[in-house]
Nucleic acid binder design. Sequence first.
DNA 1: TTGAAAGCGCTAACAG
DNA 2: CTGTTAGCGCTTTCAA
Lengths: 342, 342
Amino acid sequence: MDKKITIYDLAKVLNVSPATISRALNDHPSISFSTKKRIVSYAQSSGYRINKFAANLSKQKSNTIGVIVPKLNSPFMSAALSGIEKIANEHNYNLIISQSLESEQKEKLNAKTLYDSGVDALMVSLAHETANYEHFDIFREQKIPLLFFDRVDYLPNCPTILIDNKQAGFDATEHLILQGCKNILHVSGYLKRNVYSDRFNGFKDALHKHKIEFNPYNLFETDLDPQKIDFVMDHIKNAKESFDGIFFANDAMAVACIQTLLKEGVRIPEDIKIIGFNNNPVSEIIQPNLSTVNYPGYELGVLAGQSIISHLKGNINIQSAESILLKHKLIVRTSSLKNNVK
Amino acid sequence: MDKKITIYDLAKVLNVSPATISRALNDHPSISFSTKKRIVSYAQSSGYRINKFAANLSKQKSNTIGVIVPKLNSPFMSAALSGIEKIANEHNYNLIISQSLESEQKEKLNAKTLYDSGVDALMVSLAHETANYEHFDIFREQKIPLLFFDRVDYLPNCPTILIDNKQAGFDATEHLILQGCKNILHVSGYLKRNVYSDRFNGFKDALHKHKIEFNPYNLFETDLDPQKIDFVMDHIKNAKESFDGIFFANDAMAVACIQTLLKEGVRIPEDIKIIGFNNNPVSEIIQPNLSTVNYPGYELGVLAGQSIISHLKGNINIQSAESILLKHKLIVRTSSLKNNVK
DNA sequence: TTGAAAGCGCTAACAG
DNA sequence: CTGTTAGCGCTTTCAA
């Protein structure tokens, strides 16, 4: 049991051709039930294991899906990956996961590697930096399904899966307005990325609808790293008119801000009302509980996985790029409430 | 540029043999600098991409590392995976990640799939359930490096990477004792798993050292799912002598408990002192801040990655299984303090 | 330094 | 229903 067993070994012992072995093991219809059974059971007992290198080479497919994410250790992303993995696993696909670490160059490199590795499909959530998409051309030329999730862009024939960030941004902002805020700051991520520009546009729309003027200082673009909360604080302190509401593009930043503000004696929500984004677990823990927008990461992963696998199995017409919008949900907690009921 | 280019195509154009192409592309020493350069540059410009299926088949290796984790969406695990991915990526290894979802059966299936996929090494963090290890035999027979991290067991010649859970459990417990606790409850995970039994043993040792009697009701075994906090609460309420300290095997559970206790008017740390485990981000957010033990997930991932890659590159003698113990650190915050300074 | 040729193990078209 | 026969594209031994 030391050297590896091949279908030729099985063929010799069972007195059939390697082709028959292969067919039996792959449950090919044109093999008689009895030989199939004989072969499968002997293969099992002998400890035979398929060599996927050979099978892949011959079939030119790998049953593998590649994934590129900016960073796999965030609550949102790990939930999404968990959903993707679950679906892939159920359909016997392997998942190769790689991180771009928000670098365009790394994203390109990872894309190349995954291409070379012969992934049957690629799922991408874009890095902050990424500005051009040539590294995906090769996939599209070879008709390898390509899907974007969360941080997306709209390339021809590439499905996208995400929430309606603009509407969500609108909802969050309007909520603050309805709670009485007149001078709202939006702390955004890099506006190059759809998710952040959409949220920002929703923000502006809400202001506009309620006839609140938008000034440049109502927007603060960041990399959303909570370590750098001081920049945000500076912006808040240096405001000509002090803000009475802040809409953060993610919860981590909002939480960091709440903690700093509280330390400085600012009352939340009395002095400043705050809403975040993502429904990160910490939003339910912090005092006051953080209002936020729920972004269903796990469900998104599941849907993304199902979508790509449908493509691979040919159930969906690959030409017709579909975009799936998941439902977001405004979650109102204490941090943004007008009449704070303790 | 539609059909894929092979080394034969390159060979024809450049008037050399496929073997030479292969060698040049792999930077083989016995190829003259000039032809190497000529070949590499033409390969680049022609858009040639290696077919790894063929290369893998020929070399019988894949430059791929398999990983099985119980669940990829926990702060600890996603941090560890992030570290593993970083190292793997830097060394041009792909990472196939799969989840056992705490099921032994799924773990077995995943192990089989990863074996069939020809991973060059396997890294595992065991499922709660897993009781036997036959599914790893095939890796050991084939001399495929196998490494356990965090949730480990000690198989011959299998390196393990984790913290000293027993010592950590001891430290956490002794801390509570030094803060004046006399009747401490330990809320544990499944004691079958090393990490939990070790923490429990540390717990008992600390009690013993300080001459505190251990009774069965001082231990409560759970699956650490914070949704099921009610079972813990019942145990707390039904105690003959009420507990004055609780040591949780993870922070998520501790946080859920704190929230419930506070709602019921129990004061923390005055009435009950609490310490958790993992240094989950929420531990710094909850009021009172949760004392805990830092378990460096990212660093663990990095080390695990480096270790396995050293093995693969032959820098380490595979026979000599090494075990790496990372440093843990007791983090004392408000939830366990005797003289609570607000 | 390069080339010829034999695999690596499986699949699939074609034939029977 | 089963066998024969070519590949799949790259690596590597052996020879030149």
